[in-house]
């Protein structure tokens, strides 16, 4: 993220070009439990890096997919969601996306369409899932069918960061899909972005 002049080495997008590294981003409204889900999945591994200059939190994780070890970086919003929009570098080179809402608050569900729209502007093809969090607060929610995921043909999960229901499954599925996507990418957006950067740069020089 080059919002400031220099880029933090942990945020250098070039590292996501390595075969064994993937970037997974989280989207969703304030207080839907994004960080709590990360914490539940990572447990003892949970050591977030606050990148306050960039309004994001980074969690590093080592996963095993098939017989390979994969370095997974999870990007979490750290309050950036309050601008109702994320900085483009948040999406840049992401391999999968986890979209979260709170089953107790309708507005967080309604805002999924806004988050999804923005995601697809930058990453038209990456795997994405819809996560209905906090089912421990109201188990009846699991008897409702939320149409958003179905309509966009996205896998969906009923989860609870508090009691752990389906959290690990959701993350493992997403990591696997991120790795699969990486092996067979269909997004051309990064190339286009890079092309633009080069053009902007050369016109500045000229």
């Amino acid at each position: 993220m080059a919002r400031e002049g220099s880029t933090h080495p942990d945020l250098d997008p070039a590292k996501y070009d390595a075969a064994e590294a993937v970037k997974i981003i989280c989207l969703g409204d304030s207080a839907v439990g994004k960080s709590k889900l990360m914490e539940r999945f990572l447990l003892d591994e949970y050591r977030p890096q606050q990148m306050s200059t960039y309004a994001l939190t980074l969690y590093k994780h080592k996963a095993t997919v098939g017989n390979k070890t994969v370095a997974v970086d999870f990007w979490d919003t750290a309050g950036q969601e309050r601008f109702q929009s994320m900085h483009p570098s948040y999406y840049y080179k992401a391999h999968a996306c986890i979209m979260v809402f709170d089953i107790q608050r309708k507005i967080t569900y309604k805002n999924l369409s806004m988050w999804y729209k923005e995601l697809r502007e930058y990453r038209p093809e990456i795997p994405c899932c819809v996560v209905a969090n906090k089912i421990d607060a109201d188990m009846k929610a699991t008897q409702r069918s939320f149409n958003f995921a179905k309509k966009h043909d996205l896998p969906s999960y009923f989860v609870s960061a508090a009691d752990g229901t389906n959290v690990v499954k959701m993350f493992r599925d997403t990591i696997r899909r991120a790795v699969e996507y990486k092996q067979n990418p269909t997004d051309f957006m990064d190339e286009v972005l890079q092309e633009l950067e080069v053009k902007v740069y050369s016109s500045n020089v000229a």
């Binding site: 447990l43 008897q143 409702r144 149409n147 009923f158 499954k169």
Partner: peptide, 15 residues
């Protein structure tokens, strides 16, 4: 650690 619960889609009501 890994709690998996399947919620059947069959008897779900429209939200």
């Amino acid at each position: 650690y890994d709690v998996e619960v399947e919620f059947s889609a069959n008897n779900q009501e429209k939200c």
